[in-house]
Simulated scan of single mutants.
Amino acid sequence: MKVLVTGGDGLLGSNLLRMLLKADHEVSVLLLDTGSLSPTIKDLNIEIIYGNILDLNSLDSAITGKEVVIHAAASTMVIPAKSSSIIEVNVKGTKNVIEASLKHKIKRFIHVGSANSFCPGTFKNPGTEINPYTGWKYGLDYMDSKKAAQDLVLNAVKTHKLPALVVNPTFMLGAYDAKPSSGAMIIALYNQKLPGYTGGSKTYISVKDASQAIVNAITLGRIGECYILGNHNLNYADAFKLMAEELKVTPPHFKLPDNIVKIYGRICSLICKATRKTPTITKELALLSCENHIYSGEKARRELNMPNTPLNIAIRESYEWFILNGYIS
């Protein structure tokens, strides 16, 4: 298949492109021209197309001749909590990609959403794809815009017969995290810069498993359906303990009281407003860290044949890649 991936130079994209090549697809990636190409994809046998999902002309050119579009480009900013640019990229950009895909009669459209577009659950009752959206309570344009973009895709399925489905990754760990993004947690733990842990929890997945599920979605999965990509549910204490075992460091032992974390987050947000300096945490992120954000990936394992790699392997692959590339000495 001739596949176009939008925004394929991050942690997920860098792994996804490799999985697509391994499956013998002809791969193109649409990227913003920032003057430098991510080292994680520069040596891959792919076509690099520079353009912007906010520009219909460049999208039209990029999608011409393609059979599959995997729309992964998005603004993932959570600091600041509110920004018109986040909404423009995630909502208007998605609308443009849908329009161009319909014009060129794409055979399969795979939208990379977020698990946060569904209400999370608990260890006993994990969140699923039928849960309503409740992320509005956090006041993050990122969450709201990803839900709005997902709604655009699902509506296009109903009204214009767009052959689309949505994948909703949880917290991904693995190699090729050049920014770094989620792997920043591993670097901080290795450098012993985590004073403690909060009382919350989240769902984790090897980025390779998420990537394989997306590749499988080219031929598997049902049009108009959403698939949460998540395999491992852990509270922060257990997650840091597992990471520390792989890194051979001491995990944080002190549980930070939720009320103190939330107060600290509010203070950091106020200081940010006054000084315009980027804080280490905000009131929104503090609240998120104290809550349970647990999801079930059963539907994706069943319908997309999503693998279930042990989390310690994903941690080890992330850690070893950071060492090899000089992020950790």
Rank of each mutant, 00 (worst) to 15 (best):
G35V: 08
N57Q: 14
L44R: 13
L44N: 06
L16G: 00
K42M: 10
A81V: 02
K42R: 14
G8Q: 10
E26W: 04
L20A: 12
S36C: 04
N15P: 12
L30S: 04
V3R: 00
E26R: 11
V68A: 03
G8E: 00
K42W: 04
T34A: 12
G7A: 11
I41W: 13
L30I: 12
R18W: 05
L11Y: 08
V3P: 00
S58H: 03
D9Q: 13
G8Y: 03
L44H: 11
D24R: 15
I79N: 14
D43F: 07
S75V: 06
V68Y: 01
A73C: 12
K2I: 06
V68P: 00
I41Q: 01
S61P: 01
M77Q: 14
H71W: 08
V68T: 10
L17M: 07
E26M: 08
R18Q: 15
G51N: 08
K42D: 11
V5G: 00
L30P: 02
A73H: 09
H25K: 09
L56H: 08
K82L: 10
K22V: 04
I49K: 15
G35I: 08
D55K: 05
G10L: 04
H71K: 05
V68F: 04
S61C: 06
L44G: 08
N57P: 02
L37K: 09
L56T: 14
P39V: 03
V68W: 02
G65V: 02
A72L: 13
I46K: 01
R18E: 14
I70Y: 00
K22T: 08
H71I: 04
L56E: 14
H25Y: 15
A23Y: 07
S36H: 13
G10I: 01
A73R: 05
G51M: 13
D33H: 10
A74F: 10
L11T: 03
I48L: 13
H71P: 04
G13Y: 01
I79H: 08
D33R: 12
L21R: 02
L17P: 00
G51E: 10
V5A: 07
S75F: 03
L21Q: 12
L16E: 01
T76M: 12
I70T: 01
R18G: 00
S36L: 03
I46F: 09
K42S: 10
A62P: 03
D60H: 13
S28L: 05
L32H: 13
L12C: 13
E67Q: 15
I70A: 02
L16Y: 02
L11Q: 04
